[in-house]
Nucleic acid binder design. Structure first.
Lengths: 224, 224
DNA sequence: TTTAAATAATAGTATTACTATCTTAAATAA
DNA sequence: TTATTTAAGATAGTAATACTATTATTTAAA
């Protein structure tokens, strides 16, 4: 018996549902690995096809282009994070503990979740750090947004915003603070590892420091 | 008589100094316009050459590739911001006023500075919002960093960090908070205009709201 | 005035980002 | 069981990108 967590995705992101076939699952699995290894700029469908053992045309039958594949992968992770937050905070009654949990989830490199066979969440977390913002920092962002490509991000932001409001119902900027926490959980990690002088964690290079920084930022801001 | 502000750039960013010739200045001027119009992904040296009225080979004599040109442009703006902050805060004695000034400078779309003939700062500000993080979110970030490409960003971050410490010498994360302010001044602007549900400024779409959010964030965090 | 340097003009290459077509293999329906 | 749809594999082709190289022409400095 195998438990499976099914995350449902926006169908206009793909031509054929990658969850439905072995080749599809391989496309997801190998693209996560390859984007992580080479970076999104150098990532091509040809290299992906080679690493799977299929042809370029085979990949194109599933995804129109590499941008949509990136958005697929990134928004999959946003949904997964949203699910994790719901799951890991559902028994907590104290909103401050909830928010601390949220920060920890966002800022910690996760272990591979066995409930999602072909997706390695620990690599996905790295991709979100390095490539995440490339999903929306494009000229087509408004069109993509109309197609609801970023709904998972908005949902995640909303979940976090709700918890912020539980801590302090009068706080005026719950969504902005939520997106700040999410983005900074990733960006401070990138800076810590690659441009350490932009952070105060250059010595330890420890994720726990990022968590402490974010907790200090958030709880002072909402005055807890 | 013409006042000119000369910003000195890292020579390993270019093959020939673009500040030294008309063609060079045209490359900077038109690339700022073209990157803004088409986005960095669609920006090519061929299109740039056409818009200038020169040839592709002409551009390649100045810059090895479009990534270096982007880093050149972005780091020019970091330096300019750093200069602006120094200039506009030098007569302020109160550190809190200084920090407010900094936030305003970072979050406000500037007007074209006439001291820098061929550079339009208001467009550059837009480029920083949409393309800025692409300068460092690459696989080559460590190499680029060794070449000191991001020194202007670090200097800027340090300037802001110093002012934070003037406000509260005991605050523990001046660099991280500085990079958070800089990044969020840009990203909240992008979200406000393209993904408004990730912010709390969806109705007004007013930069002043971002400033208020950042001031609230910063001064509560450092407990002023 | 000579000479060196910068630019313009042109051509060429490997790779990328696709599209199209045709064949084969596997699953399903009649 | 056969017929038929459907997915996958194999191959080819194209326009654009990201360069490099070569030669000719103009401009500027010695």
């Amino acid at each position: 018996m195998k438990l499976a967590l099914q995350i449902n995705m926006n169908p206009s992101l793909y031509l054929r549902d990658p969850e439905g076939t072995d080749l599809g699952k391989n496309i997801i699995k190998h693209s996560i690995q390859l984007i992580h290894d080479t970076g999104f700029e150098a990532f091509t469908f040809k290299k992906l096809a080679e690493s799977i053992g299929t042809t370029e045309a085979g990949v194109y039958r599933y995804f129109e282009n590499k941008h949509k594949l990136l958005v697929y992968i990134i928004s999959w992770y946003w949904r997964w994070l949203d699910f994790q937050i719901g799951y890991q905070t559902k028994n907590l009654t104290n909103p401050v503990s909830k928010l601390k949990k949220v920060i920890t989830i966002l800022a910690t490199t996760v272990e591979d979740d066995l409930m999602t066979g072909h997706v390695d969440e620990s690599i996905l977390h790295q991709i979100l750090i390095s490539e995440g913002s490339k999903a929306f920092l494009t000229k087509q962002v408004n069109q993509d947004n109309k197609q609801e490509y970023f709904k998972p991000y908005k949902d995640l932001c909303n979940t976090v915003g709700e918890i912020i409001l539980e801590c302090n119902p009068k706080y005026k900027y719950p969504h902005s603070l939520a997106s700040t926490i999410i983005e900074m959980a990733h960006l401070q990690n990138f800076f810590m590892n690659h441009l350490p002088l932009l952070t105060d964690f250059s010595k330890s290079k420890d994720e726990k420091e990022i968590i402490k920084y974010l907790e200090d930022l958030v709880f002072n801001t909402i005055r807890i």
